[in-house]
Simulated scan of single mutants.
Amino acid sequence: MLVVFIRTLILYIIVIIAMRIMGKRQIGQLQPFELAVAIMISELASVPMQNTGIPLVNGIIPILTMLAAQILISFISLKSTKARTIICGRPSILISGGKIMEQVFRQELYTLNDLLEQLRNKDIYNIADVEYAILETNGQISVIPKAGKSKPTCEDLNITGKYEAPSVEIIIDGDLIEKNLKFSKFSKAKLENELKKLNIKSTKDVFYACVGSDGQLFCQEKEKTKRS
């Protein structure tokens, strides 16, 4: 039992390291060859996990081989445009000038239902509002709305936009993040004062707190604390 636990732990760490080396893309952003490598690595790791009769090295070597192959292919596609086209393919124009390209749909085995679903994910509910729709190599679509159908920008409205930056998380599940607190220019005394205004006695009672780009504190108390 202990052997199975140790083998599983070792393979788990190796798979995590391999996936980390592959990059930070989400599943929906993976190229076809990257998705294939990810699936094969998980399958290669599962075999020696289940069968203790197989030497552990027989699972590790194929994983490292797949990782090396993935890195090599990524490097080649990075350096060569032709190789990148062969490996990853090219984007396909599904809608051009407001016209649906039926032939492209057939070539890509892509349905109108697939397109409509992705348009809805981009808050576009009428295909007539689309000027161009491009199917990217990772399966996602890029959309250019027709003139007058896109959301107005500050430039369009002739107004000055406000500066926006990511909020800084300072408390997560009761844990105070000292580094982020300094970065947010919030002192402990100021934080404690703000928490007192919200009738919160301690940072341990806070589920989540962050400081926005406007310097305002957003804070949510833990549910258990509220009940008490």
Rank of each mutant, 00 (worst) to 15 (best):
Q70V: 08
L72A: 13
I73E: 01
F75R: 08
F75C: 14
S77R: 03
K79R: 13
S80D: 11
S80I: 00
K82A: 15
T85D: 13
T85K: 13
C88P: 09
R90C: 02
R90K: 15
R90I: 01
S92W: 05
S92R: 06
I93R: 13
S96P: 09
G97A: 01
K99F: 12
E102R: 09
E102N: 08
V104L: 00
R106I: 15
L109I: 06
Y110K: 03
Y110D: 03
L116T: 02
E117V: 14
E117Q: 13
L119M: 04
N126Q: 04
I127N: 04
D129W: 03
V130E: 01
V130I: 01
A133I: 09
E136C: 05
T137M: 05
T137W: 05
T137Q: 10
N138L: 08
G139S: 05
Q140S: 12
Q140Y: 00
S142G: 11
V143R: 07
V143A: 01
V143Q: 08
I144Q: 10
I144M: 07
I144W: 14
K149L: 09
S150Y: 14
K151P: 05
P152D: 15
C154K: 13
D156F: 04
K162F: 10
P166A: 03
I170Q: 05
I172D: 02
D173T: 09
L176H: 10
E178C: 00
K179R: 14
L181P: 09
L181M: 06
K182Q: 13
F183Y: 11
S184E: 04
K185I: 11
K188P: 14
A189G: 12
K190Q: 10
L191I: 12
N193G: 12
L195G: 04
K196E: 08
K196F: 11
N199Y: 12
